[in-house]
Amino acid sequence: MSFHPLMEYDPGRFHHSERKIADEGAPFVFTPERRAKLDEILTEYPPERKRSAVLAALYLVQEQEGYLTANGMRHVAGILDLTPAEVEDVATYYVMFFKEKVGKYVLQVCRTLSCALNGAERVTESLSEKLGIKVGETDPSGMFTLLEFECLGACDRAPVVMVNNEHWHEHATPESCSKLIDDIKAKGEAALSGCHLKVEK
């Protein structure tokens, strides 16, 4: 079949979509605490507007599973009276949701102009070398994923590296990031606490 007499039908060239089918993952229900948290969040919106809580619900799935599984999204759809497709539609739009399995520590280097002008490319390159992975990959041990990110809104502290969507490391250099990796390997989560700059007096 062809759409045009002069055009050969070539599934390799046309009908090409980069979309991946969501990973099924393990069977999913929220833990009672997370379910209670979601129910509390739902009270902040009019009862007939449950959909407003979809981002919050997806964050909770990600917190529980590490990334968004098809089972997790279906569970959310059930709670919010949406179709699974509606939930996936939203989930795939936002960059803070991981659509496939990621490492325990996701390192996100800001690559936008102000960070780049202050050496973000070198930070990314050195992290990539140290971990032996390219941007977008997870190391074989499943410990680290390296990603690039767009402006985090802290350009005065450029370059910025965000870890696991919430911990920020500012004024990053190849040296400080190398140390960060070593610290995470040695101390785990503890290496991340308190990294956000306190306001100087």
Binding site: R49, R51, V54, L55, Y59, V90, F97
Partner: peptide, 20 residues
């Protein structure tokens, strides 16, 4: 959840309502 366009006022409203 990470989207520049969510800063545009009507896109912000869409996002707030739980959509793209």
């Amino acid at each position: 959840a990470g989207a520049y366009e969510a800063g545009e006022e009507t896109a912000l409203i869409e996002s707030f309502e739980g959509k793209r």
